[in-house]
Amino acid sequence: MSAVARRSVCVAVLAGTSVLVASPTAWADFVPGGEGTASETQVEGDREDQAVSATAGAVVYDRSDNGSGETAGPVAPATNWTPPACYYAPKYTPDQLQTTLKPIWEAGSTGYEWDAEQRDRYVNGHPYKDFNKEKSGEGYWWDSYVTPGREGDPGALDCTKDIFWVDTNDDPPADIPQAITPEVLAQLAYAEIRVPTTEVDLAPENATKVNLPTWAWLDADQFKSVSVTASVPLLGVEAATTAEPVSVDIDPGTPDAKTHPASGVCEIGNGRIGEPYAKGKADETPPCGVTYLRSSGDGSYQLKATVTWKIHWTGTGVAGEQALPDGAFGGEQSVVVQEIQAVNR
């Protein structure tokens, strides 16, 4: 039997488990391999009451400082890096592992050779004896989880290591990069970040003219940091990943245009991007904007504004902020560009 097939057999019991916990750092009657108790979380301050959910009984997410709304979406890493599609975390006590594996062996559906190897590994002392029952309460059996929403990704099949034991307060083996650590939690939280789509304010607002500078800006209330905290309360570890907007890239939607600045990248300053148009500045060059050189005819150009988000995280036992790859998220809006009508007398 292939390693992937073996993994599917062992983890199918827990594939869809979800729980709610009573606070961002509290565990809801969870034991590895079991189910939590559903409840609501009230977050203090000016946040609304929100539920904090857990994936398959391992990782708890606090999304109360995350972006929201119908237009919000995930940031796309600027490189080919992606958060892990699978990871390892506590799943079973010794008794629960026995309850999970023995029926599989007795059914014989996985083949005599594999069943014998598994019995040797977990029962006969090579290297574990009797499911490590003599260590009950001193640690947990760790197994793989697939990150929600990543089930179809090729990376979801990367976690093929056999179920392994980790003593309480010990670090997981260093040769397992997907084992839960504050850094892995930060990466999982990255995948949960949601930011608003970007629609810049424009002046002129409804239609602009050929060769007339169009001003573009984003105010501070549209342009603020968001964060998600991921934790494993059972292990006492957590990481908070924050996305901070730093610039917006203006794509006019046509090559017949000039951006301001020429790079098209408008940096954040004084809590906003660009500068609102003010009366009397029609002939000035905006700090952020575009000048269209040709009419859009009977249609419109699709201006796209893409915000770059600096991503960083802090976590248990980690000094200072740590960087993760930048992310980007944007939106399109229609811009009508008209010819300036000359009047001959």
Rank of each mutant, 00 (worst) to 15 (best):
M1Y: 09
M1H: 08
S2F: 04
S2I: 13
A3V: 15
A5V: 14
A5D: 12
L14H: 15
D29T: 08
G34P: 03
G34F: 09
E35A: 09
G36P: 03
E40A: 10
E40N: 15
T41I: 05
V43A: 05
G45W: 15
D49A: 08
D49W: 04
A54M: 09
A56N: 08
P77G: 11
T79I: 10
N80H: 12
A85N: 00
Y87T: 14
Y88C: 07
P90Q: 01
K91E: 14
Y92G: 09
T93N: 02
P94D: 01
G111W: 04
Y112G: 12
Y112N: 08
E113W: 06
A116R: 08
Y122V: 03
H126K: 11
P127M: 13
P127A: 11
K129Q: 14
K129N: 12
D130P: 15
D130R: 12
S136D: 11
Y140T: 05
Y140S: 06
W142M: 06
Y145L: 10
D153N: 08
A156D: 05
C159H: 12
D162A: 14
I163D: 13
D167W: 03
P173C: 07
I180W: 03
I180G: 08
P182T: 02
V184R: 05
V184E: 02
Y190N: 03
I193M: 12
P196M: 02
E199K: 12
L202Q: 14
T208W: 00
L212C: 07
L212Q: 15
A216H: 00
W217N: 10
D219T: 13
K224E: 00
S225E: 00
V232M: 09
P233N: 13
G236S: 06
V237R: 09
V237I: 10
E238P: 11
V246K: 00
P252C: 08
G253W: 15
A257F: 10
A262C: 06
C266K: 00
G271I: 01
P276Q: 12
K281N: 15
P286N: 14
V290C: 02
L293M: 08
S296F: 05
I311A: 09
H312P: 00
G315C: 07
T316G: 10
G320Q: 04
P325F: 09
D326G: 14
F329A: 01
G331W: 11
E332K: 11
